[in-house]
Design a protein around this nucleic acid. Structure first.
Lengths: 211, 211
DNA sequence: CGCTTGAAATTTGTATACAAATTAAATTAA
DNA sequence: TTAATTTAATTTGTATACAAATTTCAAGCG
């Protein structure tokens, strides 16, 4: 377990609920669990804290942040502001090659029926990322990546992602069509609707049955 | 030099150019300079990297990110999307007490003529933060804080902040007036103009004489 | 002259040990 | 019993030492 991979592993384990929301992590426990000394654990924790994938709990201890409807709504609202910007700024640089890559990814997502929720989440983000990359906006992409990682923690609820998969899928294909047809405004409108819809589905679910 | 303060100190020293844009930082150098072992240095570096106040330079070394017009423009565009959101979400919870606090800060900023650029930047952000806090949006506030820290690195150019100070100041007072008068849309419009203007001033300056 | 290749030097990554702080528990007083 | 206070336990913070990786630089080759 090397340094970078410990960070990745810990992040994945937080997503997947090995360390569930509300759990207080301490360095000893983690260094035992992952069979490394506390130093690389500290490094990983420091990074995760800065990304808000961990939060302070008291003066010195770290906690896996609880999943609340209010925060989910907030995260989706932020995405709603930033993703249209990313798409608009990427649009002039969008090539057929890029759109082709995005299409490939969609087909992959369509065919593989037995993907884990985590895998599907990752591919879904990859799809969006491919479209946003040509924007050449490092800060914007970094923020969106971080936001997406936050959101992913909420999508452990398979029911949601499954119910959502079909309609989401159609919207993705439509988005590609609109972009191919140079219909930027329509594409942005669709994207906004797409995000808003996903956000509302998630938050309403959370309000009904809190994590 | 304790851990939290090393992080703060290092951040401040990056802002103030002790470690200038483009400089490659290594742990030994820093632990010598700040008279601590490499462990707390590593912690601070890890955090700063996650906040994009440092970036990878090669495989394992860290660099103070260069200041480019393109990135400055990007940062202001992101603020332009997020700060109106923050103001809108704070508005329903804005009290006279909060507006009073903001006013106090403005007066403080007005009276103290001999503030450093760093101090003025900090107070300026505090003003905005006071108005955004009531939004109760932890993620949004965290992002804005991070963005502001990024932007601050660009404001070492005193010429800019001085030229800008007067007009900026008037806009701040007007913003408070509009909020007091419950003119949310007008306040948001002003805020947008305020940010856009500041962004354009900075980027045009950077394009003329790069950092 | 430029490009690779290799070894030396530097730098980062990790483990262990100990000090300082925080957290928990237990004791005492109201 | 509850709340406050002291004490013990745990946990974090830091320094040092060593291993692994990177970066640098110079020698050799095309």
């Amino acid at each position: 377990m090397t340094k970078a991979s410990l960070y990745q592993q810990l992040k994945q384990d937080i997503r997947q609920g090995v360390w569930p929301a509300g759990a207080v992590l301490n360095q000893q426990k983690l260094s035992d669990y992952y069979q490394v000394s506390r130093i690389p654990v500290r490094d990983a924790l420091q990074q995760l804290k800065a990304e808000a994938l961990l939060m302070m709990a008291g003066k010195a201890s770290l906690m896996v942040p609880p999943l609340t409807a209010a925060e989910a709504e907030e995260l989706y609202q932020i995405r709603l502001q930033l993703e249209p910007m990313a798409l608009r700024r990427a649009f002039p640089q969008l090539t057929f090659s890029v759109l082709g890559q995005a299409e490939d990814l969609l087909q992959q997502l369509e065919q593989d029926q037995h993907l884990s929720a985590a895998d599907r989440g990752a591919l879904n983000w990859q799809f969006h990322l491919i479209l946003y990359q040509p924007s050449n906006c490092p800060h914007l992409l970094r923020l969106l990546h971080s936001l997406h990682q936050q959101v992913e923690r909420y999508l452990g609820f398979q029911e949601i992602s499954l119910n959502y998969a079909n309609t989401s899928h159609q919207e993705h294909w439509l988005l590609l069509e609109l972009l191919r047809a140079q219909q930027l405004d329509a594409a942005v409108a669709l994207l906004q609707q797409h995000i808003q819809q996903a956000g509302e589905l998630l938050t309403s679910h959370l309000r009904q049955q809190p994590a």
